[in-house]
Design a binder for these strands. Structure first.
Lengths: 191, 191
DNA sequence: CGGTCTCTTGACGGAGTTCAAAGCTAGTGG
DNA sequence: CCACTAGCTTTGAACTCCGTCAAGAGACCG
C-alpha cells in the first residue's frame, strides 16, 4: 500500500532505509467515496494526504453562496490545506473527494517528528513545495494573461484526460468563471 | 551585513554555528538602484535573493505589450523566479528593483551544496516555501472571490504602508486590473 | 524650466455574469 | 424494465464590471 509513495519519494531523494520505513509506517490508509469530506470549513486540518488513486478538491463557499474550487489533486500528489495544517488555524476550505479515492494520510505531529530528524525527507518535502509553488505561480500568470476562453483551451491542452474526470461546473469554478460561460465556450468550439 | 539574514534564520530554526556560518559566507552582497534589473526575460535565473532593504518586483510583458506584475518582495523576504531557478530553464519573468535596494544573493549550485548537508537549513527553506505557498493560495482565493474594488481595499488594509511605496500602475497590475480602473476606484472613495 | 513619467477623466465597447427555464443523463426504486 | 427524480448542462436576454482609447493635468528630475 505504501509502495507507491515509496516510489514517489525515491524519484526525488534517497533516504536511508530506516528513515524511509519509519516514515512510511506513520502513514495511515483511508478509503473515501466520491463526495465524502476529508476536511470541513471551520475545523482544523489535521492531516496531509498523499493521493494513491482518485481525485480530491478543495473549495470554499463565497458570500453569494457559490462554491469556489481552489485546487484539484490526483494520483501521486500531496494534498492539504497548507494554511490550516501548518499554522494550526481554522480552515477556510473544505476538502472533498471528487471521485472514489484511496489516500494515505499523516498527522502534523508525526510529520513534524520526521522532519526534525530526516535530512532527506526534508529535501523531499522541500522539492514538493517547490513544484507546487511553480504551479501556483504559473496559474497566477495564466489568470492574469488569458481570457476565459484561452484559460479553458490551455487547461484542456495541458490536462486533456483530466477534463473528462470532473463535472464541468467544478472545472469552470477552478478556472474562475461560471458554468454557463464554460458551456458557451464549449459550444462555440463545436461550430 | 549578513547579520540580518542570520536573525531571520534564527526565527525559524537553530542550525549549528558552523553550518550557519558557512551558509552566510556563501551569500554575496549586491546594491541595486531603482529600476535596475536582477534578471531579464529569456535568461537563466542564477540567483535566489534575500532582500535586506528596498523592494523588488517580478513581471512579464503580455501579448499586447503590457507589463504584468507577478510578485513584490520587501525587507526580509526571499525572492527569485522559482521556475527558472530550480529547473534551470529560461525565465519568462523579469526581476527589477522597484526602489533602491540592498540584497544578498546565492547561486543555485552553492545553495544545493548547503541543502545536501544541512538538516536545519532544509527546514528553514521548507518553512519559507510553506509561508510563500500559503500567501499564493490566499491570493488565488482573493482573486476568485473579490471584485476589483474589494481587492484594492483588502490589499490596502493588509499592507497600508506598502501601498505608498510603489507607483499606482504597478499596484493595479499586481491586483489584476488597469491603472485607469484603479484611479476610478480611488476617486470614488474620496466622495 | 523642459521633458518624461505618472495619474486622472470620460465615452464607448466587450467579456463574462445573472437569472430563469428547459433539456439531458444517470441512478434508484417499484 | 420503466418511471421518477436529482443533479448537471445548455440556451438566451438583460445587465455590469472593467478594459480600451484618447486627451489632458500633475509631478518629479535632471
Amino acid at each position: 500500500m505504501t509502495e507507491q509513495l515509496k516510489n514517489h519519494i525515491l524519484k526525488f531523494v534517497t533516504p536511508p532505509d530506516s528513515e524511509l520505513q519509519s516514515f512510511l509506517n506513520l502513514m495511515e490508509f483511508e478509503d473515501v467515496k466520491n463526495k465524502e469530506y476529508l476536511l470541513k470549513e471551520g475545523r482544523y486540518c489535521k492531516y496531509q494526504y498523499f493521493i494513491l488513486e482518485g481525485c480530491l478538491r478543495s473549495f470554499f463557499i463565497n458570500k453569494k453562496g457559490v462554491e469556489k474550487v481552489v485546487n484539484f489533486g490526483i494520483e501521486d500528489w500531496w494534498f492539504t490545506n497548507v494554511d490550516s495544517f501548518t499554522n494550526q488555524t481554522l480552515s477556510a476550505l473544505n476538502i472533498q473527494a471528487a471521485e472514489d479515492s484511496k489516500v494515505l494520510k499523516i498527522s502534523k505531529s508525526k510529520l513534524d517528528y520526521i522532519l526534525q530528524n530526516s535530512l532527506e525527507l526534508n529535501r523531499y518535502f522541500r522539492s514538493i513545495l517547490e513544484k507546487v509553488r511553480i504551479a501556483d505561480q504559473r496559474r497566477i500568470q495564466f489568470m492574469f494573461n488569458l481570457s476565459g476562453e484561452e484559460l479553458y483551451t490551455t487547461f484542456n491542452d495541458y490536462y486533456p484526460d483530466f477534463v473528462q474526470r470532473v463535472p464541468q461546473y467544478m472545472l469552470a469554478s477552478y478556472l474562475g468563471f461560471t458554468p454557463e460561460f464554460l458551456s458557451k465556450i464549449r459550444n462555440k468550439k463545436k461550430q
